[in-house]
């Protein structure tokens, strides 16, 4: 079963992501509402998630900084950015993101990206 870690400061999005992934048989193993929390939780996660879904603009620590720190903890982690801010694209890839999606995206597109990332493995 594919596992996923959702990092986004929007509570509503957490709810819909969770419903959707559950429906599609993807296991949401952790959620974080800001960057600092994400790093903290990620450090303790065992096993690591197959995929991280990362927002960019969040309180305390943005998605790019968070990605850098998570990549330091586990260079193999696969991080998909899902942001409403397209300007962060280059920074995100530089920090180690594997894909970058602009909000809003359709589920089909999100699922396809996840499976591409996993196939790539």
């Amino acid at each position: 079963m594919v596992s996923i870690f959702i990092v986004d400061d929007d509570e509503n999005l957490h709810r819909v992501y969770r419903s959707f992934f559950t429906m599609k048989g993807i296991d949401v193993i952790a959620s974080a509402f800001d960057g600092s929390e994400a790093v903290k939780i990620f450090g303790k996660l065992n096993p690591r998630p197959d995929i991280l879904l990362m927002d960019y603009r969040m309180p305390n620590k943005d998605g790019v900084s968070t990605t850098k720190e998570i990549k330091q903890i586990d260079p193999a982690s696969k991080i998909i950015f899902l942001s409403a801010d397209e300007t962060a694209r280059d920074q995100a890839f530089k920090a180690g993101a594997i894909s970058f999606l602009i909000k809003p995206v359709r589920f089909a597109h999100l699922l396809q990206t996840i499976s591409e990332v996993l196939d790539h493995q």
């Binding site: 999005l13 819909v16 959707f20 409403a84 602009i102 909000k103 809003p104 995206v105 359709r106 589920f107």
Partner: peptide, 13 residues
Amino acid sequence: NNINQGIMLALEL
């Protein structure tokens, strides 16, 4: 866009 994401996914569900 963030909000739209939420609405869109809810409607898709």
